[in-house]
């Protein structure tokens, strides 16, 4: 319902930021972000407005949380452990 895309702030002019979305740049308004935003920060963009700043630590933490979820499972379940073993740490695609 609300298409959001993360992007990296390149520069800021008042309430207007230039944000890089993986190679495409667009102006994004900062009116409604409730944290200070600086160049280099990541923000979540929706219809040309940043709706939040994405703390890099939280990204790491989410990934760690997922790893933890999977690890907890594999401890309980040998089957899951087998699958993780097959996939390998880099998670190469098996089906290629």
């Amino acid at each position: 319902m609300c298409l959001g895309v993360p992007g990296k702030v390149v520069s800021i002019d008042g309430l207007l930021a230039t944000v890089d979305f993986f190679g495409i740049r667009r102006n994004v308004r900062l009116d409604i972000v409730d944290e200070p935003v600086e160049p280099g920060d990541y923000v979540m963009n929706h219809v040309g407005f940043a709706i939040c700043r994405i703390p890099p630590a939280e990204v790491e933490e989410t990934l760690a949380l997922y790893e933890h979820l999977l690890a907890a499972m594999s401890k309980e379940d040998l089957l899951a452990a087998d699958i993780r073993g097959e996939i390998g740490p880099a998670g190469e695609k098996k089906n290629e």
């Binding site: 895309v5 979305f21 993986f22 190679g23 495409i24 667009r26 963009n45 695609k93 290629e96």
Partner: peptide, 16 residues
């Protein structure tokens, strides 16, 4: 899907 060539700019614009 992984074989379909898409330029990074098109990929980014599509996502946006």
């Amino acid at each position: 899907a992984s074989r379909i060539p898409v330029s990074p700019s098109v990929q980014a614009t599509g996502e946006l």
